[in-house]
Design a protein around this nucleic acid. Sequence first.
DNA 1: AATAAATACGTGTATATACACGTATCAAAA
DNA 2: TTTTGATACGTGTATATACACGTATTTATT
Lengths: 161, 161
Amino acid sequence: MHVCTYICVVKLEQAIQSTKFKSEVHKAGLNILYTAWWLKTMMSKELKEFGLTHEQYNVLRILKGKYPDQMCVRDIACRMIEKSSNVPRIIDRLEIKKMVKRATSELDKRETVITLTQSGIAILEASTTVLNKVVDQTMCICEKDASELNGLLEKVRVTEG
Amino acid sequence: MHVCTYICVVKLEQAIQSTKFKSEVHKAGLNILYTAWWLKTMMSKELKEFGLTHEQYNVLRILKGKYPDQMCVRDIACRMIEKSSNVPRIIDRLEIKKMVKRATSELDKRETVITLTQSGIAILEASTTVLNKVVDQTMCICEKDASELNGLLEKVRVTEG
DNA sequence: AATAAATACGTGTATATACACGTATCAAAA
DNA sequence: TTTTGATACGTGTATATACACGTATTTATT
């Protein structure tokens, strides 16, 4: 029988149908990857209602952080969660949807400066409201646990040498 | 000045150049997504030496788990870390590289059964050895912390309602 | 000033994600 | 037995990742 539920599957063992792990550290690696996929899927589902992808939303959020100032492509790329994102192409889609505007910088003609449009702000704010609500309902941990989790994740990223 | 380092950037605040978070829970969401990207990037770099992508490696690992038994595409898909992976297409690339073989199931002609080749096993084992070493060197947390992290991640995935 | 090096951005390619849909096959019901 | 529904897989499309490369512009060097 083939049963593949993943919405209410909490245990990693169930989710990826694997019981043996080399160590708790290796299991944590898989757990981080799986949880990220789970989070992304949940959020993307909500963003789809607004015609946005996760990455497009990320770019809009970054632009909002500096608004009403403009930002160049490189500055946006630096702040992306996934650093390997192809920001010029993500901006292409946002420009088509009239959520941002592109212009060449006067100070440095190599730079393209990006501006949020009023429509972009409106969609971003509406989607953020929904997303915040969904995150609060779905990520059910207390602030204390979340804080501890943040500490551990940063511990994970410290490499020796 | 534009400085965008992310290899030794440990703090989330530095990594995504953002200091204000709605709550520790929202920060944890971003932290999970960023850490997953960081992990994936690190692992992909090693896998590239073997001509493998992260997802191709995941499929090979799953097949190894049942070896010498064959597996159908659906069974593999169920065990993927990222459930939305397009497994038939990932198998296409592995088949071209002669790492797996495809055949129609005798019992159920709808099913395609996949078999690891000797070359597939060899490459998988070599890459796993390197990957395990790199994970041990890069994810520098003790088993106790890792265990606690696993508990918290599973707590995150429990949704109410 | 002329040249070299660095930088910012866009573009091209292979692979993957996310999702919809079509076809073949199997299982269940009328 | 025929039909209906479910299942397994492949394929098509839009977007993204990951990475290499080209062009224009700026900065640094000679």
